[in-house]
Design a protein around this nucleic acid. Structure first.
Length: 409
DNA sequence: CTTCCACAGGAAGGTCTGGCGG
DNA sequence: CCGCCAGACCTTCCTGTGGAAG
């Protein structure tokens, strides 16, 4: 009873505190699609002009949009899409982020998801892919509406499952006399280079580029959103700091918003009221810390073992760490922990994955006579490294005592 | 110039799990 | 129940290669 009382007090105190700082925290997340998008009017108009003919039932051009992360590609497209759907029922917009695990990262899942969006349930597994395509075609034939398919992070899709699927999708129009257009969004500019020329030309009937924001523009964005998200105005230096830090990260607006949001959360937790630039500094640390630790936490055991090997090598002052070194340490860790030892080929892939996740940096280098390999560096600062190590120790993949004498490099 | 290291990374296939429709 | 399917995860086998050493 006493416990409950205390808990209630904690909660109610928290609720009050939250009410004081955030008016609506969602404004600062990706979920939110703002009414006003500063410094993107031109792009929005371009997208609008391209998609407008769909209102009269005409098929619109495929569009390819690129720009680095946090330049507003998705928001702008979604904004236009919302407006479009508000004024006409002739257009159905299917928005899909291709990076979504277990939703759109394979051919089957992607087509299944699209079919579901059009109103037909498809089991998550069990059917032949061909069957799912049939269902998709059928429902398109029935509906006869104009479909605009927005494929966000389309580069991730092609990287994983190839461009065949895009070819199939672009050909639907010929086969079914349907009106399906594709809006592809990518943050990899060189993405189209490796595309099948047919796909490439049909996908980029129109192209729109999003340049990174500069610090000033980021400030405008932050100010705009901060007014909606927080109950009290945010000090200018705080906004400036968020903008400056994000401007260093290729003008990533998402990062700027994250910084502001986390800073707000930190203040909230401390029970204070005013965000200061110190909070922004802390937010920056926390942002990286949380992301990496979270990533590592949900890596499979084998991948963690590989990471443990890399950390071991780094800790024993090895300068140039290469795949072979990692593998030999990895073998020992597995042996001592009773873990199955995978092949070097597989470990090489796990290393590549860790690289993609931003935990390490793996660069292919040639050492001439002494072979071609990957040179690996850890990308963790001291704070993050400590947390990751603790995590790996909990999983018995790292121990405190050194049990290795690694050959010098 | 050629040689050759220590891998990279593609291709194909195996094994297992979870789920389908009949 | 069966036979089949997709997908995760892994192995086996393989060809390709940048550049220092000879």
């Amino acid at each position: 009873m006493k416990d409950q009382q205390t808990l209630k007090e904690i909660f109610s105190g928290y609720v009050r505190e939250e009410a004081k700082i955030f008016k609506n925290k969602d404004i600062l997340t990706e979920k939110h699609i703002p009414e006003k998008i500063p410094h993107r009017q031109e792009q929005i108009n371009q997208i609008g002009k391209i998609l407008a003919p769909s209102i009269n039932g005409e098929k619109v051009s495929n569009v390819f949009i690129y720009g680095s992360t946090g330049t507003g590609k998705s928001v702008c497209v979604r904004h236009v899409a919302n407006e479009l759907e508000n004024i006409t029922k002739n257009v159905k917009i299917l928005y899909l982020n291709c990076k979504m695990k277990r939703v759109s990262d394979t051919e089957y899942r992607l087509v299944a998801e699209l079919t579901r969006m059009l109103g037909k349930e498809i089991p998550s597994t069990g059917l032949p892919t061909e069957e799912v395509y049939k269902a998709f075609y059928n429902i398109i034939n029935q509906n006869k509406t104009n479909i605009i398919l927005v494929l966000d992070e389309i580069d991730a899709l092609v990287k994983k499952i190839g461009d065949d699927i895009l070819y199939t999708l672009t050909r639907i129009n010929q086969e079914l006399e349907a009106k399906l257009s594709i809006v592809g969004i990518s943050n990899d500019i060189s993405f189209t280079d490796n595309l099948d020329p047919r796909v490439k030309s049909s996908l980029s009937e129109e192209e729109i580029v999003f340049q990174p924001y500069d610090a000033k523009q980021l400030q405008d964005i932050l100010t705009e959103r901060a007014n909606l998200a927080f109950s009290e105005p945010i000090d200018n230096p705080v906004i400036q700091k968020c903008a400056a830090l994000a401007a260093q990260e290729h003008g990533d607006a998402r990062r700027a918003l994250d910084l502001l949001r986390i800073a707000g959360e930190l203040v909230e937790r401390d029970g204070h009221k005013k965000i200061t630039t110190d909070h922004v500094d802390k937010a920056e640390d926390k942002l990286d810390l949380d992301r990496i630790v979270e990533v590592v936490k949900y890596q499979p055991k084998q991948s963690q073992a590989v990471l443990a090997s890399i950390i071991r090598l780094v800790e024993s002052d090895n300068k140039n760490i290469q795949t072979g070194d990692i593998f030999s340490v990895y073998e020992r860790i597995c042996a001592s922990r009773g873990l199955k030892i995978l092949t070097q080929r597989r470990v090489s892939d796990l290393v590549a994955e860790l690289d993609m996740l931003g935990v390490i940096n793996a660069r292919v280098i040639s050492k001439g006579r002494y072979g071609r390999t990957r040179e690996i560096r850890l990308l963790l600062n001291k704070q993050v490294l400590e947390k990751v190590k603790r995590l790996l120790k909990e999983n018995y993949l790292l121990t405190d005592k050194l049990f290795l004498d690694v050959k010098g490099g």
